[in-house]
């Protein structure tokens, strides 16, 4: 199949950037979207042109490194997959595909389609952990956890930190990501001692990074490659209000 690509090119964070149109010819339907870009890049390299930079690593939908806003949707038109799992058979011959980077103040463009998502790391550094040191831990089976709770915590824990929720949200809100991380530990007994500290610290960091606020459009849930549910956001709110209005713990 032959395609026209409209790709956002931007040399570095300070460059203004703009769209450049490329032809992608004789593309196989079996290629993944990133393999299609590989082919385009191989051609560009041969011509001595700078290849299109995009983030990617595992190419099996788990590392969360790939991104791309494809034809108006993060990770492209299909549900519950990442860009690296998207195949060209999801497109029509002759189609024009617009490829943009994630757009958010908190995700500045580094080059072309690659953005800086370290804001997500910083949010987790603010409190997304259980403070236990290595060693001296009681036996794993000393803490029974009801299966339903464990499963629900697992659902939250499947987040791959790709940032599609932010990209999809019209407000560039990071609520789905942050709440999934908070929920996982808030649900489990291990996370209880720091539950209310954690939620306050992580929300504060989320705000400091310049993400927008959640207006419950639900776009994040639909576009999340791991189908993390909106329920997490409501859990985060409950814990946050609970912490701020009813708990003694104050964080600075």
């Amino acid at each position: 199949m032959n395609l026209t690509l409209k790709v956002w090119r931007q040399k570095n964070a300070n460059d203004k950037g703009g769209f450049v149109t490329y032809k992608a010819d004789s593309i196989s339907q079996d290629m993944s979207f990133l393999e299609m870009l590989d082919v385009v890049n191989e051609g560009l390299t041969k011509k001595g042109e700078d290849p299109i930079h995009f983030d990617h690593d595992c190419r099996e939908g788990i590392c969360g490194m790939c991104s791309l806003y494809i034809n108006g949707r993060p990770h492209g038109p299909k549900r519950a997959i990442t860009t690296c799992q998207l195949h060209m058979r999801s497109f029509k011959d002759g189609e024009t595909i617009t490829i943009e980077p994630w757009r958010a103040t908190a995700f500045p463009v580094i080059k072309d389609l690659a953005v800086d998502r370290s804001a997500f790391d910083r949010i987790q550094q603010a409190g997304g952990y259980v403070s236990v040191n290595t060693g001296g831990i009681p036996d794993a089976n000393e803490i029974p956890i009801p299966k339903t709770i464990a499963d629900e915590a697992f659902n939250s824990a499947t987040c791959i930190q790709c940032g599609a929720c932010v990209a999809a949200c019209k407000n560039a809100s990071a609520s789905l990501f942050v709440s999934a991380k908070i929920s996982q530990l808030a649900l489990l007994p291990q996370g209880q001692p720091e539950r209310y500290r954690r939620v306050q610290a992580m929300v504060a960091q989320m705000d400091a990074e310049g993400f927008g606020s959640c207006t419950n459009t639900g776009a994040c849930e639909i576009e999340c490659p791991k189908e993390i549910s909106l329920t997490n956001i409501n859990r985060m709110r409950r814990d946050y209000f609970n912490a701020k209005f009813f708990k003694e713990e104050e964080i600075d």
């Binding site: 236990v132 029974p144 299966k147 464990a150």
Partner: peptide
């Protein structure tokens, strides 16, 4: 010890209905 450590960190391993791993 690895399993103990990971569970303490909040790793959501698969569990049975009785709540054990």
């Amino acid at each position: 010890d690895i399993i103990d450590q990971c569970v303490a960190q909040g790793v959501p391993f698969a569990r049975e209905y009785g709540g054990l791993l």
